[in-house]
Amino acid sequence: MGENINPRLAEVMSALVRHLHGFAKEVQLTQDEWDLAIAFLTRTGQICSEERQEFILLSDTLGFSMLVDAINNRRPSGATENTVFGPFHVDGAPVRQMGDCISLDGKGDSCLFEGRVLDLHGEPIENACVDVWSDNSEGFYDVQQPDIQPKWNNRGRFVTGTDGVYRFIGIKPVSYPIPDDGPVGQMLGHLGRHPYRPAHMHFLVTAPGFKKIVTHTFVGDDPYLASDTVFGVKETLIAPFEHVRGETEWRSPFDFVMVPEERSS
């Protein structure tokens, strides 16, 4: 490497080359295997688009996304844990009124999601933005079916008041396979792994002065909880889903506990 380069760049690249060469030596990588790897990465890049990020899927299914998240989001006991962001978030979802329904196609079992956004002392956080998104009743996000689902289906943002409460009506999520018609799906097939994610609702919670929360809440009786293809399940994120009779068929209460920005552990 040249002189006067960025020290962090030098550290990262030195470690990358060292471990990459060590990997090739350990497995005695053949020329045919190297060619296959280059072709795999090429196809992975070629299938990427504004709507699809195959490299994120690759990182997720290798457990790498969760490792990077764990390194960068160590939190004290009681704080809400992060999990993978996933490839289907869309910026600029509509800001909706508290209690609004985000299911625009009217399909699926309706579910009331509600709770509070709190600090570590249990005090409510005002002006927290709770950005939510989920699949539809058939396991697809709206961006996967732009000609079938209404735009912004099962998406919305909700801003808390002085009580820190959020509340909206969505659907009880269903488990679904990640896109498996590309290189990542082929890799999973060769490894004897399924492509399924357990049912979950996505949450991105932000508030001035606090670290953002990127997480899911999971349906507790889902058959894929123990084998999530992206390794995203954490026990603290398994939320209650109560069968009720009333305006909605289900209710899922869950509080989010945020950490101040200046706190690192």
Rank of each mutant, 00 (worst) to 15 (best):
E247L: 11
L204P: 01
L57N: 02
R157C: 15
M98L: 14
N82G: 00
E51K: 15
T80E: 02
D222P: 07
E138F: 03
A239R: 04
E51G: 14
E33H: 07
W152H: 10
P208C: 08
H200Y: 10
I125M: 12
L120Y: 01
V233D: 00
A37Q: 11
V219Q: 05
D222A: 09
V233N: 01
Y224Q: 03
P195D: 04
D221A: 14
Y176H: 15
H200C: 12
G122E: 09
L104I: 05
G2P: 13
F241P: 00
T206V: 14
V233S: 00
T61F: 06
D32Y: 03
L9G: 07
T215V: 12
D100S: 14
F203Q: 00
V233P: 01
S14F: 13
I171E: 03
T83C: 12
N73T: 13
P253A: 10
V90H: 08
P87Y: 03
D163I: 06
A207M: 11
P150T: 04
E242F: 03
P87E: 10
S227E: 10
Q149A: 12
R167N: 08
D69S: 11
R18D: 14
V12D: 04
S59V: 00
T248S: 01
S59N: 12
Q145A: 12
D221N: 15
V184P: 00
G86N: 03
R43P: 00
M1G: 12
G170L: 04
T44F: 02
P124K: 06
V143D: 05
Q46S: 07
R18P: 02
T206P: 09
I71S: 02
N6V: 06
F254R: 09
R116M: 11
K151E: 14
N154T: 03
D222E: 11
H202R: 06
P223Y: 14
H216Q: 05
E126F: 03
M13N: 14
F158E: 00
P240G: 11
V219D: 00
T248W: 01
I38A: 10
E249T: 05
A79F: 06
V174Y: 07
R74L: 13
S65I: 01
L62N: 03
E114N: 10
E262C: 09
Q31A: 15
P7W: 06
M13V: 14
E235F: 11
R116E: 10
D222V: 05
D228Q: 04
R193V: 02
V233G: 00
N136D: 15
G86Y: 07
E138N: 08
T80Q: 02
I5L: 13
H243A: 10
E123D: 09
H243Q: 13
R75Q: 04
T162P: 05
N73F: 04
D60G: 02
L120S: 03
G2Y: 12
I56N: 11
T80K: 04
T162F: 03
Q144F: 03
M201L: 15
R263G: 01
L16M: 10
A70D: 15
R75V: 08
G164N: 04
F231V: 05
L237V: 10
F203G: 04
G192H: 09
R251A: 11
L29V: 14
H19Y: 15
V174M: 09
E51F: 14
T61L: 10
T217N: 06
E114C: 12
R43K: 11
Q46W: 10
Y196K: 06
F241G: 00
R157P: 05
